[in-house]
Amino acid sequence: MSKNICAYFENRYSLEERSAVKSVVIDLNANYQLFIKRLFPHAKIIIDRFHVVQLINRAFDQLRVKILKQQGDKHSRIYKALKINWRLFHKDTEKINRSKTQYFRGLNE
């Protein structure tokens, strides 16, 4: 795949045009970084925001599951809070309604 991408840019744009590129936005695929430096020598590589947020969310979920496994007691309050209300941890803080009383299922409060 990288051969096709390299060939596309090398055949379609001159080195002078590619050198004028200031930034390139990519996902977290390490293979892209290898040939982007060659194709666009003066460009800064920027990782797109979506993939950074996705990586943070995955890491957060892995940590949450690790803590769940360490709890041992599946009837404990901490275990139930982390297990049942996992969506709440991913919610934007600005979208949380702090004035509204909410019943937490499984915690009985």
Rank of each mutant, 00 (worst) to 15 (best):
Q33T: 06
R58P: 12
L34K: 03
E16N: 14
N108D: 08
A20E: 07
V25H: 03
R38C: 13
D92S: 08
F60S: 10
K91S: 07
K66R: 09
Q102Y: 07
I36M: 02
G106T: 04
N85V: 04
A7T: 15
S19T: 08
D73M: 05
A43S: 03
K3W: 15
I26H: 13
I45G: 11
H75W: 11
K91C: 09
L68E: 02
L15A: 11
L55F: 10
V24C: 15
M1I: 07
I26E: 09
A81T: 02
N97P: 11
S14Y: 04
A7Y: 10
F50C: 01
Y8W: 00
I56C: 11
Q62C: 09
E10I: 03
M1E: 13
W86S: 01
L28E: 07
E94G: 12
L82F: 01
I84G: 05
S23V: 09
E109D: 10
L107E: 06
I36E: 02
N29Q: 04
R12N: 15
N31V: 09
I26R: 07
I45H: 09
E17Q: 04
R18E: 08
N108H: 07
E16F: 01
F9P: 09
K95M: 05
R12Q: 12
Y79F: 01
I26V: 08
Q62I: 06
F35S: 10
Y8Q: 03
N4M: 11
T101I: 03
Q102V: 06
K80V: 00
R105A: 10
A81G: 06
Y103N: 09
M1N: 10
R87Q: 11
Q33F: 11
R77E: 15
Q71R: 02
Q54P: 10
F9T: 09
K66M: 15
Q33Y: 14
L39M: 05
S23M: 09
L39V: 07
I5N: 14
K100A: 14
Q102I: 06
V25P: 05
S19N: 09
V21F: 04
M1V: 08
Q62T: 15
E10N: 07
W86Q: 01
I67L: 01
L88A: 05
S2Q: 05
Q70A: 08
I56T: 10
D27M: 02
V65W: 15
F89L: 02
I5V: 13
F89P: 06
L63T: 02
L68A: 00
D48K: 12
N108W: 05
N108A: 07
K83D: 15
V25D: 05
I46N: 15
I46S: 14
V25R: 00
R64M: 13
K95S: 10
I46Q: 13
H90S: 11
Q62R: 08
K22Q: 12
S19M: 05
K22A: 12
T93K: 06
S76Y: 02
Y79P: 01
A43C: 00
I67F: 04
R49S: 11
N57D: 04
S76H: 01
A59Q: 06
R18N: 13
Y32R: 08
K22W: 05
E10R: 00
I45V: 04
D27E: 02
W86F: 04
I56L: 10
K22S: 13
I56N: 11
S99M: 13
H42P: 03
K69V: 13
V21A: 07
E17I: 01
I5Q: 06
Q62H: 09
V24M: 05
